[in-house]
């Protein structure tokens, strides 16, 4: 069971507005279903990860992109992008 307060707290952290009253019930149903994981008996299971050697990663170098893209920005002013005013 997940409380409304817990859902509201997560929503606040994730910057999501909760205006759908059904969301509490649906999220609770989903999370309650995940409780099945408690009976999986995997407590002693070790975690394993895929390792990729650095030598197999692509070279870490700057590749110029299409510079004209910036001109498509709404607030592009020729030599700068105007930042919005926020309170």
């Amino acid at each position: 069971m997940v409380s409304h307060e817990e859902i509201q707290h997560v929503a606040k952290l994730m910057k999501i507005e909760l205006d759908d009253p059904t969301i509490y019930e649906r999220v609770d149903k989903m999370i309650s279903y995940f409780d099945i994981l408690d009976s999986a008996g995997v407590e002693s299971e070790e975690m394993s990860f895929t390792e990729i050697p650095l030598s197999e990663l692509r070279e870490d170098k700057y590749i110029p992109f299409n510079e004209k893209l910036i001109e498509k920005l709404n607030y592009y002013k020729g030599t700068y992008v105007r930042a919005p005013k926020m309170i």
Binding site: V2, E6, I7, V10, A11, L13, M14, I16, I23, R26, V27, M30, I31, F34, L37, D38, A40, V42, E43, E45, E46, M47, S48
Partner: peptide, 27 residues
Amino acid sequence: RRMILGGFVPSAGHAGKYFLKALKVKN
């Protein structure tokens, strides 16, 4: 809804019950 779930299941206090167990089931 999935974003809310995605914030909840790996969060402090809940990650052990959900996210880490899910990774172990995957393993």
